[in-house]
Each structure stands twice: as structure tokens, then as C-alpha cells.
Design a protein around this nucleic acid. Sequence first.
DNA 1: TCCATATTTCTATTATCATCGAAATGACAG
DNA 2: CTGTCATTTCGATGATAATAGAAATATGGA
Lengths: 110, 110
Amino acid sequence: MEMKSAVTALGALAQETRLSIFRLLVEAGPEGLCAGDIGARLGVPAATLSFHLAQLASAGLVQARQQSRFIFYSADFEAMNGIVGFLTENCCGGRPCPPARARRKKTTAS
Amino acid sequence: MEMKSAVTALGALAQETRLSIFRLLVEAGPEGLCAGDIGARLGVPAATLSFHLAQLASAGLVQARQQSRFIFYSADFEAMNGIVGFLTENCCGGRPCPPARARRKKTTAS
DNA sequence: TCCATATTTCTATTATCATCGAAATGACAG
DNA sequence: CTGTCATTTCGATGATAATAGAAATATGGA
């Protein structure tokens, strides 16, 4: 992941509604949720939701797939891991350090 | 880390200059770098740099400390790990899943 | 085909952000 | 103190983003 796509992805997440959507989809797992369900759960009007889903999709953070009458959105976990890696890349010049150890502890769950 | 501070932090990183600054500081480790050095390395005018450093600081992503005539900025690794945790929290409903395994592999380095 | 409903596009309004020169402030050395 | 140099504040300008109602566009069941 290079700078530009990282900025785009972070910008997509830097908004309360979108961050809520994304976290909901991360929790939902690979199956995802359909647009209507997302809107209902978060209390977001359809037009607003569509706008934000488009932003997340164009940032590469979520994927859409049609399933019967519904469009299911799911988190792109590879992209998410890419951002995490980009932020923590070469931490402390690559030397062993407490920050990496703490991070390892957290992200090892599940 | 709750929603609001996460949005603020992500917003602080969702900008090319600031993301570059932050990554530079992550690489620099706990010592950090003084403002002038950051500006010189990234080719950012002093006024612009100061603006962005203030944003990063108020988002809790960097810390400043005076050292002789210079002000040293360093990444707040705890905040960084907090964001990572917030994004990946409860991934796939907490069930074991490939995304978490892939992430573990990446963040285990150093 | 035709309708019900899921989702998107259009549009306008309002608000926030990035940039950087110039001037002001702050801190230290001598 | 005083001059020097590091950093911040001010201010003006241009650009991008969030919101949601109304209308348009799919999609698939009957």
C-alpha cells in the first residue's frame, strides 16, 4: 500500500458514520450486511448511507455484491490489514521495541 | 478508545503531509525528531508544518517536548496501537478467522 | 409484464480544511 | 540583556466534504 491509497483509506474512515459502518462490517465478517440493514442499524437515511458506502468502496475498504434484491457490503480485510501495516511499518527503525510487543499482544486475539 | 477520538485520530492521519510526518516519527522511535528536522526531511514550510504538528498533537498522535532550543516530536505509540485495536476490534464477531491470522503475521515483526 | 421496494443519483446548502507568507513569540547562548 | 534562531500565530484564499429530500434507476417476485 502506498501513500496515496493509504490517505484515501484513512480519509474514508475519518468520519463517524463511515467508521461505524466499517466497524459494523468488520464485526459482521465476510458475509457482510445488505445496505438496508446497515441503514436500519445505524439510523442513517438511505441517500446518506449510499454516499458513504460509495466512499468506502472507492477507497477499497468495502466490497459490494448483489444477492437477490439486496446489495451486500462486506469489509475488505486485506485492505484493513494493509492500513495497519502501513501505519506500523518500520516502527522504531525496525529494532525490537515495546510498541511492537504491545501491539502484538492486542492483535493476537481471536 | 471511543468513536470520537478515533475519528479525530484517523482524520489527523488522512492527509498526505501529516501521514508522512507520523510515519517518519514512528520510524524515528521514542526519541523523535525536532520540528526543523522534520520540515527539512519532508520539504514542508515551517508554518505548514507547525499547523500539521498541532493537528497531530491535538489528536493525541504525537507528543512534544522541549529540549534545549528545539522542540522534539515523537509518535504516541499507545495511541497508534489504540487505533489499530479499534479498527480490528471484534473482527468477524470474535470467531477465529483468516483476517486475524494474516494480521498477526504482519504485526509480529520486530 | 408490472409493481413493490432497494438503492443510487441529483442538487443545493453549509461547514470544515490545506496552504503558506509575514509577523509575532519563545528560548537559549554569550 | 540582547541578538539569533526555532517555532507558532495570523490572515486570506481556494478547495473539498457532509447532509438529506426528491426524483430516477435497478431488481426480482407474482
